[in-house]
Design a protein around this nucleic acid. Structure first.
Lengths: 201, 201
DNA sequence: AACCAAAGGTGAGTAAAACTTACTTACAAA
DNA sequence: TTTGTAAGTAAGTTTTACTCACCTTTGGTT
């Protein structure tokens, strides 16, 4: 588990912002350390003063972006009273964050998951906390009777996370725009009300 | 768009199987061309006779695995009459395939998505067909009245795909086992019936 | 003010791995 | 037999992530 990446010395900041900028147009693999250093206005060697790895740099940049992401989520659900309201808020806020911050989305959904070291990084720890928040809300909802008590909360958590991520995927990969509000509303409707058509009302 | 990878000459087959075997224990990045060639019993140069890239090799191996995957799906839904039944079958078969074939799952869910070339590969074309199958079933269900007509079929498609993928993710990454039948049943229940608790029945 | 340790930063160098290229061998058709 | 093509080899080359020994600046202590 790496350290949470404090703001740090100017060189480190320059490296991280340069890398983050490059990630807007290129994928991780095709960004070279020389390119990063060049754009940051530092030498290649400095990268390895602050980051153990090229991947560590990726993880720390993700950590930074995700911190803002999670802050946005938490303020979004504070005012909501019902569990369903909270989950709606999380889904909307998540989609919105991914849509607004393509770099965050690209790193998180496409770039980090393949390497084992990510799962030992501080960034992943934050993601786990985020996922845990959703799980806790679900459990609470099942206890209060807002949500059906006869289901696996883990599974609902996965369905929600999967729905959020897969909804963004195409937009992230092909750089398209998306109607965040409509998507969020649709997902909420599908998951909460179900898609089976029946006369019951 | 690369060619669909015919069986091909012995050297090509040896390379693909050696690589596929290596993918069971290591991630793409840490597998070297020397290692592949060594395990295949050929020279490194031969890889580049049949594959433009190391990534092209990855894509062609994925293509091969996915062909079997899709064949399994199609036979699984043939007998089903209702759209819901078909979707259930697809969800179950998908989870089952991923659980049975870790290499397929790892490549598809973790390794290929970061590179642009994947989206021009034959493997991705197959994935699109698979996704399209789901979409078609949804549309049919909305027309026949099995599924609610007041929703975005694309969104339901994404929710289903996301649910399937995210359910497998942890198991694939950390090599855990999962109760496929239970997971499939749970997902189906959540998506079709919804998770909101209400007295209506 | 003088000092010094530590942090910030440099630049040349290394090793490894992906990819190239010029070449050889098998082999079927004309 | 000749010939043309596909299969395969072996020895490079280049790129790129990473290292290491060395400067430079800074700030706290005596």
């Amino acid at each position: 588990m790496k350290k949470p990446a404090k703001p740090g010395p100017p060189g480190k900041i320059k490296i991280m912002t340069a890398f983050s900028l490059l990630m807007e147009t290129k994928d991780f693999q095709s960004i070279t350390t020389a390119e990063i250093a060049g754009n940051a206005g530092v030498t290649e060697g400095l990268i390895y003063k602050y980051f153990t790895d090229k991947k560590d740099l990726l993880h720390q940049v993700l950590h930074q972006h995700f911190a803002a992401f999670q802050a946005g989520i938490e303020t979004g659900i504070q005012e909501k009273q019902t569990c369903i309201g909270k989950l709606e808020a999380i889904i909307l806020a998540s989609l919105d964050s991914y849509a607004r911050n393509r770099v965050l989305a690209r790193i998180l959904l496409l770039e980090v998951r393949n390497s084992l070291s990510y799962y030992e990084s501080g960034a992943y720890a934050m993601v786990k906390t985020y996922a845990r928040t959703i799980l806790d809300i679900i459990r609470e909802g099942m206890e209060t009777g807002e949500l059906r008590p006869d289901m696996d909360p883990f599974l609902l958590q996965k369905v929600i996370l999967g729905a959020i991520e897969h909804t963004c995927l195409k937009q992230v990969i092909f750089d398209k725009k998306m109607d965040v509000a409509a998507a969020a509303g649709g997902i909420v409707d599908i998951i909460f009300n179900g898609v089976k058509h029946h006369g019951c009302h």
